[in-house]
């Protein structure tokens, strides 16, 4: 491309305090999530006495067919079968019988077998086996849950900050844009939209307001051109700045065919389409641009993400 960045605005000096939020750890959520992990991986052991959470096989006898079962498996305390009956059998032992009135029916319950639910302890070994990937200790797990809360907040607040950084960066940097490069980027975007329209059986130029509805927020082909031209500035400038950043920082952006082919494979799998279509809509030319854009957005994100959350 003939276009290039002559001078990049020093965005790292930007004051983001207007976008900053206070972060307080929600300890209740950390406890609840830790407890959830424990509940998900119990162990089971043949037992004698019925406790809440156990799996119990019962024999029930009643005049009512619903409560007349030779072998009935229930989870005590889930209250999926009968709250009253489940509460009544807590503390009973294998072989014991009891009469319970359920839904105005007299039911004789006999405990046939009990499998006790044993909840694990939150230890390093447990976390290593059942916790998230690369988390090996209880301390690391708590830190992981805390960071998860931070990431969620960041997800909510980062869009406004990112747009502000991009606005400032674009308007204060010196970038020369050649018309042919702008046209090239427009062509890439138009080609992509034409392929998608064809796939749905449309001719892009002839699409009506109704045809566009729910697909692209425009009501005519000409509105689409205006939208794409508008998007094209950021498309091109983010690419150019990505190239500039990579060059000045000595970073080699991955433009290998191997990575491109992997992305095509992922696209085919995700969208359940064929490889020829995937290559038609995701050209190698565009892949190279997108890789530099990704580097640009990742660099910005790593700058602002640590400035947006004020930990208390």
């Amino acid at each position: 491309m003939k276009s290039k960045v002559l001078r990049l605005y020093d965005y790292k000096k930007m004051d983001l305090s207007n976008y900053q939020v206070d972060f307080h750890v929600d300890q209740g959520r950390i406890d609840a999530e830790s407890n959830h992990l424990i509940l998900r991986y119990p162990s089971w052991k043949e037992g004698v006495e019925v406790n809440l959470g156990d799996t119990v096989t019962l024999k029930t006898q009643s005049k009512n067919e619903k409560f007349n079962k030779e072998s009935l498996k229930i989870s005590v305390g889930s209250f999926l079968y009968s709250r009253k009956l489940e509460e009544a059998i807590v503390g009973m032992r294998v072989g014991e019988s009891k009469s319970v009135t359920v839904d105005e029916e007299k039911v004789t319950v006999t405990i046939v077998s009990v499998t006790n639910k044993i909840l694990p302890k939150m230890t390093d070994a447990f976390v290593k086996e059942f916790g998230p990937e690369n988390v090996e200790t209880v301390e690391q797990y708590k830190e992981y849950l805390k960071n998860k809360q931070k990431e969620e907040i960041l997800e909510e607040i980062s869009y406004r900050a990112e747009r502000a950084v991009i606005r400032e960066l674009f308007s204060n940097s010196e970038i020369v844009v050649a018309k042919e490069d702008f046209d090239y980027c427009m062509k890439l975007q138009m080609d992509r939209h034409n392929v998608l329209a064809e796939l749905e059986g449309y001719n892009l130029k002839e699409m009506t307001k109704e045809d566009f509805e729910g697909k692209i927020p425009v009501s005519s082909y000409w509105e689409l051109i205006v939208l794409l031209q508008d998007n094209c500035w950021e498309y091109l400038e983010s690419y150019l700045i990505g190239c500039y950043m990579a060059e000045t920082e000595g970073i080699v952006v991955d433009l290998s065919e191997e990575t491109y082919n992997q992305q095509i494979k992922d696209y085919v799998k995700h969208w359940r389409t064929d490889e020829a279509f995937a290559r038609k809509i995701n050209t190698f030319e565009e892949f190279k641009i997108l890789q530099y854009q990704a580097y640009f957005y990742e660099t910005l994100r790593s700058f602002y993400k640590n400035k947006l959350i004020k930990e208390n």
């Binding site: 959830h36 509940l39 998900r40 989870s75 999926l80 995700h270």
Partner: peptide, 22 residues
């Protein structure tokens, strides 16, 4: 494997296994 709602439902099934193993 690539569907996000499927992953969410998978977690629900794992929770279910912890409560109703039968």
């Amino acid at each position: 494997t690539t569907c996000v709602p499927c992953k969410m439902f998978s977690v629900i099934l794992e929770d279910l296994e912890g409560e109703l193993p039968f």
